[in-house]
Design a binder for these strands. Sequence first.
DNA 1: GATGAATGAGGCTTCATTCAT
DNA 2: CATGAATGAAGCCTCATTCAT
Lengths: 194, 194, 194, 194
Amino acid sequence: MGDGSARREQIIAIATRLIASRGYSSTTVRDIADEAGILSGSLYHHFASKEAVLQEILRTFMDDTLSHFERIVASGGSHREHLDQLIEHAFLTIEQRPDEVRIYQNETGFLMTQPGFEFLVDGAARIEELWIEQITAGQCDGVFRDSVDPRLAFRFIRDAVWSTVFWYRPGGRHTASSVSANYLELLHSGLLAS
Amino acid sequence: MGDGSARREQIIAIATRLIASRGYSSTTVRDIADEAGILSGSLYHHFASKEAVLQEILRTFMDDTLSHFERIVASGGSHREHLDQLIEHAFLTIEQRPDEVRIYQNETGFLMTQPGFEFLVDGAARIEELWIEQITAGQCDGVFRDSVDPRLAFRFIRDAVWSTVFWYRPGGRHTASSVSANYLELLHSGLLAS
Amino acid sequence: MGDGSARREQIIAIATRLIASRGYSSTTVRDIADEAGILSGSLYHHFASKEAVLQEILRTFMDDTLSHFERIVASGGSHREHLDQLIEHAFLTIEQRPDEVRIYQNETGFLMTQPGFEFLVDGAARIEELWIEQITAGQCDGVFRDSVDPRLAFRFIRDAVWSTVFWYRPGGRHTASSVSANYLELLHSGLLAS
Amino acid sequence: MGDGSARREQIIAIATRLIASRGYSSTTVRDIADEAGILSGSLYHHFASKEAVLQEILRTFMDDTLSHFERIVASGGSHREHLDQLIEHAFLTIEQRPDEVRIYQNETGFLMTQPGFEFLVDGAARIEELWIEQITAGQCDGVFRDSVDPRLAFRFIRDAVWSTVFWYRPGGRHTASSVSANYLELLHSGLLAS
DNA sequence: GATGAATGAGGCTTCATTCAT
DNA sequence: CATGAATGAAGCCTCATTCAT
């Protein structure tokens, strides 16, 4: 478990694509095996179970995302810059690893209650903490308006940003960074004129 | 089919609750029948299929939501008032019919591609149209800032607002209307001070 | 049971048509009830069971056919005339009551082994007896060739004749009586020239 | 699918026997699996569906029968000899593969209208063509009487011959070849003396 | 590592039938 | 006579998983 043979990584890649497009419970072990060119039983030489595949996908995603976020807030810059960078990194992730984001967005709600997926709860909590720290600190600095509840602001931003994964398609009207810029402007200054 | 006997409505209510909490594909016909106190085969006296139950749930939800939205934009008031009322009605719906909203949010992405669920595509398109009209008209009025892309603004708001259904719990720190007020303020004026 | 209300006869007529075209086991009680404009449960006010419907269809058919055959052999005329008349009556039946013939041909093989359908075994035996008597007597008369086995000749004729129900369609290339005439000629004189 | 492992062939053999005696729709997947000593779900490791089993049975039967018929008419000999050989081969098939013949006779009428069974329609048409060619050519040769309609003669023979499968039992009063000889004599010369 | 065969549990659905109203 | 609701058995099929080879 966890050693990265080429086969394993190929299977993870296939599973990620399939689960993202069909959902975890509608993706069968045979679907994955078929695309890997092996029989479904043979998958069990690489993974202990279907759930283990999902765990590995989500754990990798969560680890990467969290460590990026940690690096951002540990870097030099103002709290406002940090918040903007967190948002920009989210959009970058959506562009570069949309399948993982989709899986995370779709399956995480139910999975968080399941044994073996505690790392999702922990990771989400840590992320919430990191973001809220930036907002709260930015309010202390007088950069962010005091009247907004930091927790609500965090969820507002988080949900608006990550949800774009469901409709953003590269090559369409917008690039990830144009969406990012628009969202940031709206978030910074609001919808009302003057 | 479609006529609302008491039993039918009771079954719809049970199915709505179960599907909202477990997901459609993880909710079995037996789960629903068990809670209704009948055998699973007996469900087919009331509904043609498991999918027909889901269709009825979503169609009712879509019809109700859409007609409310239509009534709002047809009423007197400025475009800004209309947009605020649309948002407030969404929060009201989340408070009053959270299970239906959850089902819509969770299942709709996949279902929109399935035969028999075209009404979801049509309804979503009509809703997008209604909302975007308010934003665009508000920009003409000079009430909303011109620099935001109306379509992006719509999706930003829509995703932020409807996603609250996944974490909002009545009786917690916030009421639906306090969340609504906070979100409206953030949306109107943005996060930055001054 | 057995009293001939209008409803009963209507149901028998519908069932005959449906069973003839789909087969007994593929015709559902609901199919029949639907066409009768009632609910499937209501059929049980008229018939004890689905099987009872089939029994009534086949019993009527067998009774009518047998009594016609008895009348033919009891009438004046040579044995050869009798045999021809038996055959002609079969073709007439195929033309006038094709659904019943189809049901008989399709279902009878299995049903003969089932309790409640002994009348089919008895009727078929009596028919075989009647026909074979004509053939045997005709051989005694010197009208039919001695070298043919009467039992085999009977089955040869019976199977060739009744099977036409599966392909004969009124309004096509042939009328029932032209088929009848052709078959009789072939049977009488054989295929070889001179 | 289509490759003939030993297990597959064993299952086909079992299914053939069961379907011949009970009919397709009255033979359950469990019946077949039980006799094969496996669970019903395990059948789906070998066949895609119950219908696929039936298709394979009938396709094999049709292919074999058709290729035999083609070989007969391609061989040396007169048209009359060819026709006799076609009939004799049918009786041989009834003796050697009665279950397949029974299935073909029982199920084919309905199946010909079903998607996936077009090969039955095509095969039956090709067989009809082959047989009718012999009859027509024999008429040109002056061997067969001109007054019979070749198409009707074909159906007369076909139905009389293949129907014997429903009553012929090896070890009874007749052998397949004695039935064959009797039928041929009756067909050649007819029933009338002189 | 992979195959091929199987398990066992469970999924959705159908259907003849019953019965209170 | 008919409805409406339900039963209970059974049907076909799916799927994660196991294991001998």
